[in-house]
Nucleic acid binder design. Structure first.
Lengths: 244, 244
DNA sequence: CCAAAAGTGTTCGCAATACACCCATGT
DNA sequence: ACATGGGTGTATTGCGAACACTTTTGG
């Protein structure tokens, strides 16, 4: 990658693996953070943990932590999510959002974090299998974006970027079905869209748009029994072939 | 700001809970790589340098290098690009593409790289003001993707991702005008699209589509004098307000 | 019966496509 | 005059938005 160049590094050179020039390689910490989103009662929520130690002790933050020396980034994200919240997520379902590396983003040392996005079906409560996360909770994304609920580090920005990315990919990818349980009604899927886009969608047009999209949904034989106030029973659908 | 640098012990520290434990994190090297694209004679090309030292000595690679301790990631990308190729690029014109951190992507040590994309107007030759880059050259992207020209590390994949991203953003962003000089004809812009999408576009429809798009282009009073074989002189256009 | 929710049909307008045609220049 | 490339007009088609309407349930 890089070759000999003047050594502008004010720090004493670290002992280093052979082959790299001293004075050029400064050690960084690399972490991963996970933006886990879910829709509960028509509201988009993000999973946060309450920090137990400084800096930002007591503040809310994204689950995440250090990448281990021989660990892939996505694996680290999955592991941290499991350790801190008890939620197991396949690494293939984690979408990389980007790297955040402003020099002062951590007050103590240079940390570059790689953010990952994850999506789960309506999760009402956090499993609490986490090793030692002080506290994990689902909070409305709106509270984060309005800054009514301040986050540690640059995590508010990361959440904002994640939501923007989610909105952009709603129509072109299969993310939305990730917010639904294995079998779901079109209404349920529509409410996911509405929570994310913050708009109302025409139910009839949505129905067509989503059922006609190839490989997106597959119908089951089962129907749902209507609520107390009646109504035609809705078909249950599964994620389509393309989403597997 | 705590300054205790951990010794770069290659062995992993104990798997530990969330939270910072300065002195126990595993040191990573963080680098940036730049995928600089340009269109020359209807061909999409990427700027590569020839490596002078192992690993991959003599192989082609993306320009890039280590991030310095107090340097922002985008700044590092701009600096490395300038140092290795003599091309100055504003950091705001560098688009982050993502982080690549597979444990074995560098044979000697753990390196996480953050890739940035850049776009310049038809660049026929590399400035050669680079400090020490052995050799820098523009090569057809097709040669990289077909693996006819193998690249060091995982750089082929990074280039592939960059091109995919470029294609996806062609219609929704202003990237394409970045491939054109300050004043350009619609034909020139169309050839950029054609080189990137690998298709032929109807010139008439392209004209309308691109001129009607609000804030995308602004006409000048100037025309271009036709070539030797005649033809109606084309209007010169500038990037629109939205692209500033 | 009516209310409510699922799902379909119908219409309209816009935007993309195909392609014919006119415009302004060089030789 | 003719070739060449710039630019506009026009017909067609497909898709999304708006919304009326039918279907199937509970009360």
């Amino acid at each position: 990658m890089s070759k000999d160049r003047p050594s502008p590094d004010p720090r004493p050179p670290e002992p280093r693996p052979e082959g790299y020039d001293p004075g050029v390689f400064a050690p960084f910490a690399v972490t991963v953070d996970v933006v886990l989103l879910t829709v509960v009662e028509r509201q988009l929520k993000v999973l946060l943990i309450q920090r137990g130690h400084p800096p930002y002790a007591g503040a809310w933050a994204l689950p995440g932590g250090f990448v281990q020396p021989d660990e892939d980034l996505a694996d680290a994200a999955a592991r941290e999510l499991l350790e801190e919240t008890g939620i197991g997520q396949d690494r293939s379902r984690l979408l990389q959002l980007g790297a955040y590396g402003q020099p002062d983003r951590d007050p103590r040392m240079r940390v570059v974090t790689v953010a990952y996005g994850a999506v789960v079906a309506r999760l009402s409560e956090v499993p609490r299998g986490g090793s030692d996360a002080a506290h994990a909770e689902l909070v409305p994304v709106a509270d984060v974006q309005s800054d009514r609920l301040p986050l540690a580090f640059d995590h508010r920005r990361i959440v904002g970027d994640a939501v923007a990315r989610l909105r952009a990919e709603l129509d072109t990818s299969d993310v939305a079905v990730g917010f639904c349980p294995p079998e779901f009604t079109i209404r349920e899927l529509r409410e996911v869209y509405e929570a994310i886009l913050q708009t109302e969608l025409d139910s009839g047009n949505f129905q067509r748009k989503v059922t006609q999209r190839k490989g997106y949904l597959t119908p089951t034989e089962r129907r749902v029994t209507p609520g107390e106030r009646g109504g035609r029973p809705a078909t249950l659908w599964r994620a389509g072939d393309a989403g597997d």
